[in-house]
């Protein structure tokens, strides 16, 4: 960061990151700018900063997630924090401990930052009210996944220069997707045109009033799009409940070469992972030249470093 910039605490004046909703566009941009610097650090031999030295970060995951948890762990460690991973899915919850009990227990250990993933929408907000430290939402139910939206935005910005004016098509299981909700808010805030493409069974009620154009026909939805963002379809939704079958889903909503041809010639393909190859995306496209899927993972660490650093600026110093 150059010297004439205001300090990060002013650019990001919040103690938590609970969602993209409520963030101002300039605050989002500040996090993205900070993440650019983190990309550079992560590419150096010496990857350590000291902003979180002496701080304790707890990754509290009520839902298993190798990718997001390790990304937050690396991000915390690169900033010098002591990081502890707690997978609650298989321990205390089974013994009957409530979310609030867990929060109180953890709070007594004086963490500085808690990163939370929970299967229920709103759980992270509830927990944030019950602890004294900063809280990062690493995904709550079908509500928000703010660091995913930030890393997607960073990836797009690095390739397209800017988010404003781009047409972004988000495709797949919008109904159950926290990634979609966070992205819809963020991309609109930064001036993109957002489309969603899905069978109506995978769209939430009132989707047309959520700041998007809605398409059930994927070729129409992808027409001229600059970014094609695929979503993961959970296995339990594939067999007749929301869609009839994998083969029918892939036929109408799987991203293959044929459907991608409807998008802009320089369209880029993204996926939050983990992918179901042959369900929502053809392996040929996932591994092809238009795919940014690997790079999204790298940007994930950078964005999480930026978020942790921004929150660190608000931690008490005595």
């Amino acid at each position: 960061m150059s010297a004439h910039h205001p300090p990060l605490a002013e650019l990001y004046p919040h103690r938590h990151l609970l969602g993209i909703e409520g963030l101002q566009p300039n605050e989002i941009v500040a996090l993205l700018d900070q993440a650019e610097a983190a990309v550079e650090i992560s590419r150096q031999v010496e990857k350590k900063k000291a902003v979180l030295r002496g701080r304790t970060q707890i990754n509290l995951f009520f839902e298993a997630s190798t990718r997001t948890q390790s990304s937050f762990e690396i991000a915390g460690k690169r900033l010098g924090a002591d990081v502890m991973n707690m997978s609650v899915a298989s321990s205390s919850v089974k013994k009957g401990e409530t979310l609030i009990d867990t929060a109180a227990t953890l709070n007594a250990m004086h963490p500085d930052i808690i990163v939370v993933r929970h299967h229920a929408a709103g759980a992270v907000h509830l927990l944030a009210q019950k602890v004294g430290c900063s809280v990062v939402n690493a995904g709550d139910g079908a509500h928000e996944h703010p660091t995913q939206a930030l890393l997607d935005a960073l990836t797009i910005r690095r390739h397209k220069g800017s988010i404003a004016g781009l047409t972004v098509a988000i495709c797949g299981d919008i109904l159950h997707s926290r990634v979609a909700r966070s992205n819809i808010i963020l991309l609109n805030a930064l001036g993109a045109r957002v489309r969603v493409v899905a069978p109506s069974t995978l769209l939430p009620n009132g989707i047309a009033q959520m700041g998007v154009e809605v398409f059930q026909d994927m070729r129409k939805g992808l027409a001229g799009a600059d970014i094609v963002m695929m979503l993961r379809l959970q296995r339990e939704r594939m067999q007749g409940a929301y869609i009839p079958s994998v083969r029918e889903y892939f036929r109408y909503y799987g991203l293959d070469r044929d459907k991608l041809a409807a998008a802009a010639a320089d369209a880029l393909v993204m996926h939050p992972g983990p992918m179901n190859r042959g369900v929502e995306i053809d392996p040929e496209i996932a591994d092809g030249p238009q795919s940014l899927i690997r790079e999204q993972v790298e940007m994930g660490v950078a964005v999480r470093m930026a978020v942790l650093e921004a929150l660190a600026a608000h931690l008490p110093n005595k």
Binding site: Q239, G240, A241, I243, P244, S245, R247, E248, R251, Y252
Partner: peptide, 15 residues
């Protein structure tokens, strides 16, 4: 309309 007419899983309406 549903697989095996079971009333449980939707059939492949498009295909």
């Amino acid at each position: 309309l549903t697989k095996g007419l079971s009333g449980e899983e939707m059939s492949e309406i498009g295909l």
